[in-house]
Design a protein around this nucleic acid. Structure first.
Lengths: 186, 186
DNA sequence: AGCGATTCGGAACATCGGTTCCGCTTGGTG
DNA sequence: CACCAAGCGGAACCGATGTTCCGAATCGCT
């Protein structure tokens, strides 16, 4: 499996630096950064960048992979009610996203046909299902709330977060609150 | 000051056809349509298109102007409670938007720095304020709901609508319902 | 019909961002 | 130290899209 047999020391180092620079650039400026800018920020030529990541998409995946995996690895916190778990999950997600423009771009304004967004949506729906299931015993969610509703609500919140001027956690917290009221059992 | 003194018959007609074709194209394919495609759809050359609308932005404004004005002209229906008024307004807006990809693109995924979006947001906030005011007498909204919250909620809903696969009014209606529960007085 | 101002069509140009190519450099091995 | 494959830099290429230009066609008036 290991095909990293003959990779030069500097090649490895460059790969790292490109990855770091790209992560930084994506976080700061969103998905739309110019490849040339990333290369420059990493202190390498575009050729080098393309040697390591044959396509923009490859680079994007390499960089957002971590964030996406983190989000995908997240689960409903245990030991609390369905609604409390959701509150924590929503809050944690929003916090985790602040300052990551690329992630917010992807989730808040990405095309509905984007594969990454679809993957996220489906994972969020899984988490929503956990909440719905848990509510079957603690009845803290409204009975007509579905797993999809929960996923959609979170994505709606992320869009709202993108629209809020600077990024006062206060306002966002309030929005999370409103959303949860809509999901909670009456 | 009518400066339309000497405009040829056919020039006027072409203007109309371009406007119609553009409206159609924007509605069907979103903001990203190619100018050439619009010109072709209108049965004119690009030169003609540019004679009438010196810039893409001009065309966009001419076309979305109507929709935007409609949305901006909308107000909270009178004679009902704050929450009922909001329900009608939300539902009407969502209905009005279905099938208009350009409008949905703009509102659901537009950059936070877009001037049109900002204008919309501020108008929606005005409507939100009406609702908040009305609730001061009928108390049908939660006391901590602000005008901004209402505007944000609607934009969140529009983003959700964009994400929902085909466009079953059912699902959207349900989402509207959840949002309103979050805004309603307990 | 004749004529000039207006409008038209669409090829050509400009720009922008992703990607490729290739001559030069460099790490690492005998 | 010499060599050479791995790696590098960045100019050049490409395709997409907005925009300009100008000779040809058309309108409307006499």
């Amino acid at each position: 499996m290991g095909e990293d047999r003959k990779q030069r020391r500097d090649a490895v180092a460059n790969r790292e630096r490109i990855l770091a620079a790209a992560a930084q650039a994506f976080r700061d400026s969103g998905m739309a950064v110019d490849m040339r800018a990333i290369a420059a920020a990493a202190g390498v030529g575009v050729g080098t960048l393309y040697r390591h990541f044959p396509t923009r998409e490859h680079l994007v995946h390499a960089v957002t992979g971590t964030d996406l995996a983190e989000l995908a690895g997240a689960a409903l916190p245990g030991g609390v009610s369905a609604i409390a778990g959701l509150r924590r999950f929503f809050t944690a997600t929003m916090t985790h996203l602040t300052g990551n423009k690329a992630m917010v771009d992807l989730l808040a304004a990405g095309s509905p046909s984007d594969a990454d967004l679809a993957r996220c949506l489906s994972h969020l729906t899984k988490i929503g299902q956990e909440a719905v299931d848990r509510s079957r015993t603690d009845h803290t969610l409204a009975t007509d709330v579905t797993a999809h509703d929960i996923a959609y609500q979170l994505l709606g919140l992320i869009r709202i977060a993108q629209l809020i001027p600077d990024t006062e956690p206060n306002t966002i917290g309030h929005q999370v609150d409103l959303a949860l009221r809509g999901l909670a059992a009456k």
